[in-house]
Each structure stands twice: as structure tokens, then as C-alpha cells.
């Protein structure tokens, strides 16, 4: 069953006087419980596709449905609430808030829920435990390595138990060892916790960990490869 359904999406940007078409007629399904790698050269539209799925951007035409919800039809307020419940987003440059500890960073999505302080604490501890950073809860981002920062960002993405995890070049700023740790963690989240994961990457090693790989080139889906 498709968790993400993208139908006949047309997306264009206006840059100064020039209109740039990113997608002209994109249709795509992403199954629930899948681990999909989205590859392609710079400017192929990978990040734009991720933003459309996350409801950070809206298609010029066409529909994007996630879990049955028409993302393009929601208001900004509805989208914010929907994202808080359904999307876990991880950035290339981690984007932890430097003034908050790892614990406080992970707690951020839970502040948007009605959970009590005690329940929030329980969920944060669990998320940090899953990413193997229980002992770093009180550390600030500057006190963590790149790999630890990204794992904290992943803990922040999973703490509210979202339907879908979207990761934009999650290993782009990590060394080989840290990359492997993060990718192993993502595989575990997919296999053990049945999280649906979409990862944008340039890294073939990262794509190897995915169950399916999509290639985008100039806004077109040119190849769909299944990884054994």
C-alpha cells in the first residue's frame, strides 16, 4: 500500500525573470514500510521532491498525498500540525539548536503535543537510547561529534513517532565511519520499527542500504531500481 502518492505534479520556480520547471509531470508511489533512496545530480529536483512530500512546499499543479492526506490542499497552520504528527525530517547539516542540549533538541517536537513533562522525558530517553546517545543527553551540540549530532537529529525526527522519515543528505557532512553508523541506524529503524524512510543522497554506499532507489534527472524519474 502506498504511503506517499504523487500524481501529475508540475512544479516551477520563478528566479528573477526566468521561470524554471523542476517537475513537468511527476507521478510516484512510495510504499509504507519502504526504505527509498532518491539519487540524482545537483539540480535534479531531489530536495524539491522531499520538500513537497514534507509539505514544506506546494506543487504548482498536481497532488501530493501522504497517508491519504492531500498535502497541497492544507493551510499553513494545518500543515504545521500535520508535519508535527506525521513527518520526521533530518537535514544534511544536522540543524540542532546550539543553545539547547541534546535532550532539549530531541524534546522539541514533543512540545507540540499534549504529553506531560514526565511522558515527554520518557519518550526522549527512549529516542536517545535507540540512537545510542543516552549518555550524551546533557551535552550541547558543540560538545558532540558530527556523527553524534546527526544521530541526535535522527532521535529528534523519530521521537514523536512519525509516519514518515525524510532525510536530506544525512551523511553528506559525515566521515565514513559516522556515515556507516547513521545508515545502520536508519536500516534498523526501517527493519525493527517499520519506519517508512525516504533518503536523498549522492552517496552510492548510502543508496546501497536502501530497499529501493529512485533516480531523478532534470525532474524526471528515469530509473527505478530495486535493491536486493
Amino acid at each position: 500500500m502506498a504511503l506517499v502518492e504523487i500524481r501529475d505534479v508540475y512544479k516551477s520556480f520563478q528566479r528573477d525573470t526566468q521561470k524554471i520547471d523542476v517537475f513537468t509531470d511527476l507521478s510516484l508511489d512510495i510504499a509504507s514500510g519502504s526504505f527509498t533512496a532518491l539519487m540524482g545530480p545537483s539540480g535534479s529536483g531531489k530536495s524539491t521532491l522531499l520538500n513537497l512530500i514534507a509539505g514544506l512546499d506546494k506543487p504548482t499543479r498536481g497532488t501530493v498525498r501522504v497517508g491519504g492526506a492531500d498535502v497541497g490542499a492544507m493551510s499553513a497552520g494545518q500543515l504545521a500540525a500535520w508535519r508535527a504528527r506525521n513527518i520526521g525530517f533530518v537535514f544534511q547539516s544536522f540543524n540542532l539548536l546550539p543553545v539547547l542540549t541534546a535532550y532539549q533538541n530531541v524534546e522539541l517536537p514533543l512540545l507540540l503535543t499534549n504529553l506531560s513533562k514526565k511522558d515527554r522525558a520518557e519518550r526522549v530517553r527512549l529516542a536517545l537510547d535507540v540512537v545510542g546517545l543516552s549518555d550524551r543527553a546533557d551535552h550541547y551540540p558543540r560538545q558532540l561529534s558530527g556523527g553524534q549530532e546527526q544521530r541526535t537529529a535522527i532521535a529528534r525526527a523519530i521521537v514523536a513517532d512519525p509516519t514518515l522519515m525524510l532525510l536530506d543528505e544525512p551523511t553528506g557532512q559525515l566521515d565514513a565511519k559516522s556515515s556507516q553508523e547513521v545508515l545502520t541506524l536508519l536500516q534498523r529503524l526501517n527493519n525493527e520499527f517499520n519506519k517508512t524512510i525516504v533518503i536523498v543522497t549522492h552517496d552510492a554506499h548510502a543508496a546501497d542500504r536502501a530497499k529501493s532507489v529512485l533516480h531523478l534527472e532534470k525532474g524526471d524519474l528515469i530509473e527505478k531500481a530495486a535493491v536486493a
Partner: peptide, 9 residues
């Protein structure tokens, strides 16, 4: 980033 997490306007 906070908006991406779900913080409303």
C-alpha cells in the same frame, strides 16, 4: 528548522 518540525507561524 522549527517550522519543519511543526512549529506553527
Amino acid at each position: 528548522v522549527l517550522k519543519t518540525i511543526g512549529f506553527s507561524d
